[in-house]
Design a protein around this nucleic acid. Structure first.
Lengths: 221, 221
DNA sequence: TGCTCACCGAGCGGAACTCGATCATAGAAG
DNA sequence: CTTCTATGATCGAGTTCCGCTCGGTGAGCA
């Protein structure tokens, strides 16, 4: 099981999201263009105020085009979120590859770095929190929930760094993900560049929490 | 500075929220009735699907009455959230009074208990997370942010249990609040009664985090 | 030269929100 | 204790705006 298998993956999610899978080239550009526009608009006016007309206009498309690809307004937001989550996972893989972690903490740290980087650079990235809390009965695919990422990460930590896997590890990673998500969000709440104090504290909290269960970082290589 | 001064307080928040402060008796009943209705409807259909017409009908009021008090749809949700936060603070005070904490951890634990209890019993309480993440430019009052509660709690812990106060304590409590909020929300994500495993882990995380800075619980009495 | 995919945007239905008419209440006046 | 009345409170039809549809038009592929 390689890293790319774990995190990269294909956009499995699109199954329920997009009405019509684009066949021609220009349409795929439209599709991403719509999401780009949505990302910018979300940053400007927020979740509640965003309208499909705004997205269409910003993307240089007509309102009908939006609905050709997405069944409704929230589907656009969900697709944007899916793309953000996907990019996050891809970024984690890049980060792992480029930094070459020597122990499990380095690997976890890569995820934090990826998250912070994307929060800073990717428009609309804060959407990753949207609909987290919302009750989503038919949420289509399940690889958007924090549990999915926790499971994937558990696989890496167990196989690559010898952490004892199983449901315990998954559970603790899910707790870790929730903590990190909230503290990092807080870091960006008022500071668009991310309050370093919260970011640093987030790393510390995660590390201490996991060390409590899996021992010092050095010993687990 | 008494506990009730710290947490009880008056609904300072209403200043920007309500269009017209009710003067007659029946109107205050209407106001809370509207929020009661909104709470139930939120639990039933979620944030996105809730309509002002639903709230009005459930409250036995006309649509015009809703807009007499609230400028728009989201204002109703915000007001509901304000009330939930207020009730949480009041519940914390009750909890502190009835349980008589002997050390700082007992006091913190009271807050967790209050939160969990309300999540279980109070309709629409999960709204406390709504608009947390949302950019709220003119969010009216600031005693809804986690920082406010952290400051209040810091006051109690410093004065009552001798913890060293100041910005450090406030910062750590804010981190603690964010962590607890996210983990507890996760506990109620799929289990309406709250997954005890996450709740217990939340307590452990908070305790370990604070103990790391302020020493063992017993020693700090 | 068709044939299908992609796109457009006027139009429809419904939800958010307004506003003048109507009812209820508090408190003054007798 | 009863009017009386000013004003708060309520109502709900109507207006505006937004989510979404659908038939018609243009662009790419064979």
């Amino acid at each position: 099981m390689s890293l790319s298998d774990l995190f990269g993956g294909d956009p499995v999610v699109s199954g329920q999201q997009v009405r019509i899978e684009p066949t021609q080239q220009r349409s795929t550009a439209r599709l991403s263009g719509l999401l780009d526009a949505a990302a910018v608009v979300v940053d400007e006016v927020g979740f509640d105020r965003i309208t499909t007309a705004m997205v269409a206009e910003r993307a240089g498309a007509s309102i009908g085009t939006v609905y050709r690809y997405y069944p409704d307004r929230v589907a656009v937001l969900q697709a944007l979120r899916e793309r953000a989550v996907l990019r996050f996972r891809q970024r984690v893989v890049e980060q792992l590859r480029s930094s070459g972690p020597e122990n499990w903490w380095d690997a976890v740290d890569c995820a934090v770095t990826a998250f912070v980087d994307l929060y800073r650079s990717e428009p609309g990235f804060r959407i990753v929190h949207f609909a987290d809390r919302e009750r989503t009965p038919i949420s289509g695919s399940e690889d958007l929930e924090s549990g999915y990422f926790a499971r994937q990460l558990a696989g890496v930590l167990a196989e690559e760094f010898g952490l004892h896997g199983g449901p315990e590890l998954i559970f603790r990673l899910e707790v870790t993900v929730e903590m990190a998500d909230s503290i990092l969000s807080r870091a960006f709440h008022s500071d668009p560049n991310g309050d370093e104090r919260f970011i640093a504290e987030c790393r510390r909290v995660m590390r201490d929490y996991l060390v409590g269960y899996y021992g010092p970082v050095a010993a687990s290589v």
